[in-house]
Design a protein around this nucleic acid. Structure first.
Lengths: 194, 194, 194, 194
DNA sequence: ACGTCCGGGACGGCCCGTTAGT
DNA sequence: ACTAACGGGCCGTCCCGGACGT
């Protein structure tokens, strides 16, 4: 019965969205509860760790969701350039659709949580690690020399993250599209013609 | 006599540092005042616009400071690869020296201010615009075709921004070094006729 | 067992007294909370509308309390002159007992809230309206022609309100006693020719 | 050259108006300075006693202004009923013209200053005293027995003060007009030889 | 297990009335 | 006569428990 996702789920989902748009400190638990239509006292039942736990779980969720998108985009592509370009372009489209507000779900929180919470930072680090691993694996599959694959994956992810920041500030998806082109080329160059 | 830079200056400088490390919403004015050894009433005198004005001015300052660093690093370099690599490496060293806490002064604020303040967002956008213009100009000087220079500059800046995020989360300057290498190569490929 | 009236009640009562003595703007919520021995968080829980809601409810309370006093004083009196005189004299005694500080609970707030809050002004207007209605009814019962009763009631209430202001400024109940005499006479003149 | 009334005068005038409309505590010195177009530092040059002195002087001014109006209205009238009625009616017209905001310049401040400042309360008391003396004198001139004149004057002033409060809250000049009628009659009854 | 009522401080940013310096 | 600086207080709202009722 795919009925009510449950209070806990609703809270977590709402929190994730708000954190992504507004950041961690700018998002009040009251707002989360109000938008998630959750009763006030329930939060500490489902999340005894309070806001910190909520943030950490939201990061895990967000990280996993992005990982799935990465997999979906790269899974059956055989041409690196196409795969990367279409993946990033899809990301750009989603971003525009959100009104230039929904950037990377992890970066926004990671930057303003900083040293406040080790728990959340670990969740963010895990997210990045999983994405890198995913991309690295795919790059190797495309013929990139294993010893160079992780570095290349890191650069690719960094470029996308940075482009999301630029795009958000400028309210313009162009940086994402530029990155889509150049990073595709970079990968192609390393994937090796011969 | 290396005299007192003045209360206003001290407040602005302290605010800039705290915003960079903790983000906008996580930084309280009380903290700024305490660390800047400024009395509470002075803030309102020097910054009638309150926290928002403080944020906007801090962004302008931070943006200008980064622009100077970019110019200093690229001014007299003739080899693009070297110039970019050393610039980014220097950035990485500063970052490590700060204990992995001082990321991009603009990005941290830009992400958690979001739509809260148009004033601050404009200041952030101006910072990015100035950096892009600076890099674009230098790229053209190095022989990159003008119609491709801006896109390349955007990608370079995006990659560095993203690398700063990754490096901060992982507490590891490796992403910056990876970007230094690959972006240098990317530029060389577009600049060099050979 | 004369138990705890509850936090909300305690806050409201304290606020009412302080507003009456000091006015709305001169009374800080901190003072209300301190004297009412309530923590700040409770106020926000019981009065989500903040100080404005507190003011409006205090006005309703104060208005109702005065209305009861009016009824009690006039209920079983058959002689208008006596009824009015004793009612006002009782008021004067209470006023002296408060150290000349507790004037009309409504007027003090009404004057310094002015246009700040429509909500509070409406509460004040309702209080005055209820008193006028009460007195008007009683006047008719005493034989005042209905078409003149409301005007007479208004004048009586106005005279008492004004006398409270004068008495407070001069720290002297004489104005109230003067009003008690003259208004009684005024009513008698209009009520009973016989 | 009766040109610029001078900074001090401008400040005092503005303060008087604002105190009358908003009350003492609700009126900030910044607002006074801004509306009076006076530089901030000038206030303490002209009014070393700060806000309190400003309030006290404004009360003296306001009190004197009302006294003049009373004199003007009653000076050459021979019929008490007419004199009182027209005086109060004029007051009502001014009040309506101010948008129901400019009540008694003294009462508004007197009530919310309360025990805060002895200086201001004295100024308020003086104002009331001067009005009472003025009216008392005139009543005697009209034939009211001297031993009854002061009480009658007090009641008249009280009724007007109270009517101003009611009128302000209800945004309706009717209470003033009612008072004009009844108090005129009251005076006539005591003045009249018959 | 799940949710509610109520309470509890701490701190958020803003703005107040005031004083030194000159 | 006025710029610059000063603390402290304003009201609001934060994130969080404990007691109670299902």
């Amino acid at each position: 019965m795919a009925e009510d996702p449950g209070t806990r789920e609703r809270i977590l989902r709402t929190a994730g969205e708000l954190f992504q748009r507004q950041g961690y400190h700018a998002t009040g638990l009251n707002q989360v509860l109000a938008e998630g239509k959750a009763p006030k006292g329930s939060l500490y039942f489902h999340f005894p760790g309070g806001k910190e736990q909520l943030g950490a779980e939201a990061m895990s969720r967000g990280g996993a969701a992005v990982a799935e998108k990465i997999m979906a985009a790269m899974a059956d592509a055989t041409d690196p350039v196409d795969a990367i370009a279409t993946a990033i372009r899809k990301l750009a489209d989603d971003f525009v659709a959100s009104g230039f507000r929904a950037g990377c779900p992890v970066a926004t929180v990671a930057l303003d949580v900083a040293a406040d919470s080790e728990l959340i930072m670990v969740a963010c680090a895990d997210a990045y690690r999983s994405w890198t691993a995913l991309v690295t694996g795919r790059l190797i599959g495309w013929g990139v020399p294993p010893e160079r694959a992780e570095g290349l994956a890191t650069v690719a992810i960094a470029a996308v993250e940075g482009a999301l920041v630029l795009a958000r500030v400028r309210r313009d998806p162009a940086p994402l599209r530029e990155v889509a082109d150049r990073i595709g080329a970079l990968v192609a160059a390393e994937a090796g013609p011969t």
